[in-house]
């Protein structure tokens, strides 16, 4: 188990290292460079100044040596300064991460709270009216462009009804209160939930239907257990297994969804930070943001695999690759 864990963590680190190299190279290919932007804003700048600035920021070095310098600084905990915010990158990430974790966490809970009853309801009578209706709603949920759903929600609840704010984290001028923060969270959470709940429901429904045709479910029914008990005690527990893995794999989609949602609703989280950093040539910030997002995704799938082993005693992760 420990060997497996270490192996997986090493694997994740390798992926992150490769990703950082690839991203570092790509960021260098973005339009313009930070010195051009700085010098464009200052009419008094001379070519000598530009050369000096480039040397100061190491931009006169070839890309691989800049990358190596970045890695060795990063290993010592120095991830550099953000150009956009003029702050250490880690400070900004520390600011933004809780916002995104909150958004993702609440959405995940809401999505699961909807997906479980819906899937159980649908799986009770596959092909029935309820199943077909739920299936159709799921298809809609998978197919709706998340940013358009966000626009529709804004039109309905902010423009037409005026019940909820169209974006932002708190009302300007007013005193910051938890209630106000929650009001600003409703539409983003609804958007992110809608983007994920359909996939969860479909996974869970398929797993439940599969499990419900097993012999032990027939046995449970034959000994006279109520349908509810069969569903919750016998079917659901076993259906959870494949769903846990899929949840782990869907974690990346959740992170991508958070980027759209935060951008649409002006939530100052990691997603919007990454987008702004890429658009604003803030290499250091974009790089770290992307690595945090990728790291979180890898961690998500690792946790899912560990939960899988915990839920199913038949599975053991041994060092000899017995997975």
């Amino acid at each position: 188990m420990l060997g497996y864990l270490v192996g997986r963590l090493l694997q994740a680190l390798t992926v992150l290292l490769l990703l950082s190299a690839a991203t570092y190279g790509l960021l260098g290919l973005m339009p313009g460079d930070p010195i051009d932007l700085m010098s464009g804003a200052n009419p008094d700048i001379t070519p000598a100044d530009i050369a000096r600035l480039k040397a100061l920021h190491g931009l006169d070095q070839p890309i691989w040596s800049r990358y190596l310098a970045w890695v060795s600084a990063a290993l010592q905990g120095d991830f550099g300064y953000s150009r956009l915010y003029a702050q250490p990158v880690l400070d900004i990430v520390a600011d933004r991460l809780p916002v995104t974790l909150m958004l993702i966490g609440v959405s995940l809970v809401v999505a699961l709270a909807i997906a479980f009853p819906a899937a159980m309801f649908a799986a009770r009578n596959p092909g029935g009216l309820a199943d077909r209706a739920i299936n159709l709603v799921c298809f809609a949920g998978i197919s709706v462009p998340p940013f358009w759903l966000a626009l529709l929600l804004i039109i309905l609840f902010a423009v037409i009804l005026g019940w909820l704010p169209a974006g932002g984290m708190a009302s300007t001028g007013g005193e910051a209160s938890t209630l106000d923060r929650l009001r600003h969270l409703i539409l983003p959470v609804a958007t992110l939930t809608a983007a994920t709940v359909a996939a969860y429901t479909r996974h869970l429904r398929a797993a439940l239907i599969e499990v419900l045709s097993e012999d032990y479910v027939r046995t449970a029914r034959a000994k006279g257990l109520s349908e509810h008990r069969v569903m919750t005690r016998h079917a659901l527990r076993n259906a959870l297994l494949p769903v846990v893995t899929l949840l782990g794999l869907d974690f990346g989609a959740l992170v991508s969804g958070a980027l759209i949602t935060e951008t649409m609703f002006a939530q100052l989280g990691m997603g919007k930070m990454i987008y702004d950093a890429i658009m604003g040539n803030d290499y250091n910030l974009a790089l770290v943001g992307l690595l945090v997002a990728a790291g979180a995704t890898l961690l998500g799938s690792l946790l899912a695999d560990l939960a899988y082993a915990r839920l199913d005693p038949r599975i053991s992760y041994r060092a000899d690759g017995g997975s």
Binding site: L26, M30, L249, L259, I260, I278, M279, L290, A294, S301
Partner: peptide, 15 residues
């Protein structure tokens, strides 16, 4: 498993 959208944004922004 990767967060595809942020990566696509980087790739799409390449000059």
């Amino acid at each position: 498993a990767l967060p595809l959208l942020p990566l696509l944004i980087v790739l799409a922004a390449v000059d």
